[in-house]
């Protein structure tokens, strides 16, 4: 029998499971409340997971790595930035459900800087803007969103440069 090597993914889940086991021994009421929250959250992210799964499938089926490289790879220019920032602003659900799709796109040749821009631009939440305006005013909301968009590009450039420098 070949011994199974635990992957980082499984180790992470095992650590969390151990944390929950410790919580069960310490405070069972807190554990039950945490599990209720978990089920509630899971119910909320399932539709987004299905959307991400569908997008991954479509990308694999119809998008050629060459086309991805051309439009979102090195030299993609302002169009690449536009797609990444707009994609980030329009994307919905928690950040971690987007990692598999971004990982796949990266393998197809998408620039690291555009992935960073996508992830950062997600801080602009159009559907939640009325709530932010209610608490902080429209001027604060408009200025903050503007800076977030600017910094999504700045961060993309910085992260890509630092990644390149750390390799060299």
């Amino acid at each position: 029998m070949i011994p199974m090597k635990p992957s980082g993914r499984n180790i992470f889940l095992l650590v969390i499971a151990a944390l929950y086991a410790a919580l069960a021994a310490y405070d069972i009421a807190l554990l039950m409340e945490t599990l209720r929250t978990f089920v509630n959250l899971l119910g909320k992210i399932v539709p987004v997971l299905l959307l991400v799964f569908a997008m991954m499938f479509i990308v694999d089926l119809v998008v050629e790595p060459g086309a991805v490289k051309k439009r979102l790879g090195k030299g993609s220019g302002s169009m690449g930035w536009g797609v990444a920032v707009l994609g980030g602003v329009l994307s919905t659900g928690p950040i971690y459900v987007w990692y598999p799709l971004l990982g796949d796109l990266r393998k197809k040749g998408v620039r690291d800087s555009l992935i960073v821009a996508f992830l950062y631009a997600r801080a602009v939440k159009i559907p939640m803007a009325p709530m932010m305006i209610y608490y902080f005013g429209w001027t604060f909301t408009a200025v903050l969103y503007l800076y977030i968009i600017v910094f999504s590009v700045v961060n993309g450039i910085l992260v890509e440069r630092l990644l390149r420098d750390s390799v060299e």
């Binding site: 969390i16 919580l23 945490t34 959250l41």
Partner: peptide, 25 residues
Amino acid sequence: TARSFRQTIPLLLGVLLLVSLVLVA
């Protein structure tokens, strides 16, 4: 796609369990 997604499930579950814990604690 299914294979790639299946590989990420332990991670997504782990993050979700951790988020739930932080939200309650």
